[in-house]
C-alpha cells in the first residue's frame, strides 16, 4: 500500500492555494477521488482544483466540520450538538455551505445543511420565504392570464383544502398549479 502523504494542496475558487491535512481533506469524496484516481494534490504545482462553489471561507468551514467528525470516540450526543451549532449561521452562508458541500459530494454535511434549510422554509408563507432568501417573485404577473382557464367548480373544491393557509392571491396560484398540471 502507498504511504499516505500527510498534506494535500487545494486550490479554491479565488485561485488561492493552501495546504490541508490529507486525512481531513479525504473526507470529501471529490478530493479523495482526485488524490487516489488522478494522483493530484501532492505538490503546489498539481494542486487539486476545487469546484467554483468552494470559496476559501466555505472550505475552512467544511474542514472544521471534517476535523471534528474525524476524531474517533466522540459520542453521538457530542456529534449532534456540534452539528446543531455548526448550522447556526445566517441563511446566505447556509446556502453557500450547502452548495459547497454538494459540489464536494460530502453527503453528511449536505444532509445537515439541507435539514437546516428545510426547517427555515417549513411553516412559512411564500412571501416570508422570498423575504428570507431574497427570492425574486417572477410568478405574480402571470396570474390573470391563467385564471381565465380555471373551471370554477374545481376551484371551489380545491379552495376548501387550501383555504386559510396563505393569502388569497397565493391560494389561486396554488390552485392553478394543481388544476393545470
Amino acid at each position: 500500500m502507498k504511504m499516505m502523504k500527510p498534506y494535500v494542496w487545494l486550490q479554491t475558487s479565488d485561485d488561492s492555494i493552501q495546504q490541508v491535512e490529507q486525512e481531513i481533506a479525504m473526507f470529501c469524496p471529490l478530493i479523495c477521488q482526485e488524490i487516489i484516481q488522478k494522483g493530484m494534490g501532492s505538490s503546489k504545482n498539481c494542486a487539486i482544483c476545487l469546484p467554483q462553489q468552494v470559496s476559501p471561507a466555505m472550505l475552512s468551514l467544511i474542514l472544521d466540520y471534517c476535523r471534528f467528525h474525524q476524531v474517533p470516540g466522540r459520542s453521538n450526543k457530542e456529534r449532534k450538538s456540534y452539528d446543531e451549532k455548526f448550522v447556526r449561521i445566517d441563511t446566505e452562508r447556509l446556502c453557500e455551505l450547502t452548495s459547497a458541500a454538494d459540489s464536494l459530494q460530502l453527503k453528511p454535511l449536505v444532509d445537515l445543511t439541507s435539514r437546516a434549510l428545510a426547517r427555515i422554509i417549513e411553516g412559512k408563507t411564500p412571501e416570508e420565504i422570498r423575504d428570507i432568501f431574497h427570492l425574486p417573485d417572477d410568478l405574480t404577473e402571470n396570474v390573470e392570464v391563467e385564471e381565465e382557464h380555471v373551471d370554477d367548480r374545481s376551484v371551489d373544491d380545491l379552495l376548501s383544502f387550501i383555504n386559510g393557509n396563505d393569502g388569497g392571491k397565493l391560494n389561486i396560484l396554488t390552485i392553478l398549479i394543481f388544476v393545470f398540471t
Binding site: I121, I129, L135, D138, L139, N165, L173, T174
Partner: peptide
C-alpha cells in the same frame, strides 16, 4: 404540505 406550497415561490 409545505413542500407543495413552494410551487408558488417562483417559476
Amino acid at each position: 404540505r409545505d413542500v407543495v406550497r413552494t410551487c408558488v415561490l417562483s417559476k
